[in-house]
């Protein structure tokens, strides 16, 4: 089950234009977290990191196309499930096979260490 809390940007918060004359010269985005909405809702599989197998190489952090993995040299990677869209790139790239993709319908613990 998706444990992410519904938060951040709602559709009403995004600028909407009724008239081309109200548009700026070009579309520009400012750096807002979750500018595509709560992409965590898209997930059917979720990455679960087994930290005991992890060597803290940081590949998953680098490869994640959505930038939803936080990385700390001491504690290792952490997935932000509000935005993780479940693409599986991190699991595929992990050299230690420390990330498994689990069905959303399965009850799992995040960063399940004794998997």
């Amino acid at each position: 089950m998706n444990k992410s809390k519904k938060q951040d940007l709602k559709k009403e918060d995004l600028p909407s234009f009724e008239d081309y004359r109200d548009l700026p010269h070009i579309p520009v985005s400012i750096g807002v977290k979750g500018s595509m909405g709560n992409t965590g809702e898209w997930r059917t599989f979720r990455p679960v990191i087994n930290l005991s197998a992890c060597n803290k190489c940081g590949f998953c952090y680098i490869y994640c196309p959505e930038g939803t993995i936080k990385f700390d040299k001491e504690t290792g990677p952490m997935v932000d499930y509000i935005y993780c869209k479940g693409c599986g790139v991190c699991a595929r790239e992990c050299p230690k096979d420390a990330i498994t993709m689990r069905r959303e319908t399965e009850q799992v613990c995040e960063n399940d260490e004794d998997d």
Partner: peptide, 14 residues
């Protein structure tokens, strides 16, 4: 309408 400023990052060419 557009200026590059590292203090205020933007995404352009969206």
């Amino acid at each position: 309408h557009l200026v590059l400023n590292p203090e205020k990052p933007i995404v352009h060419g969206n």
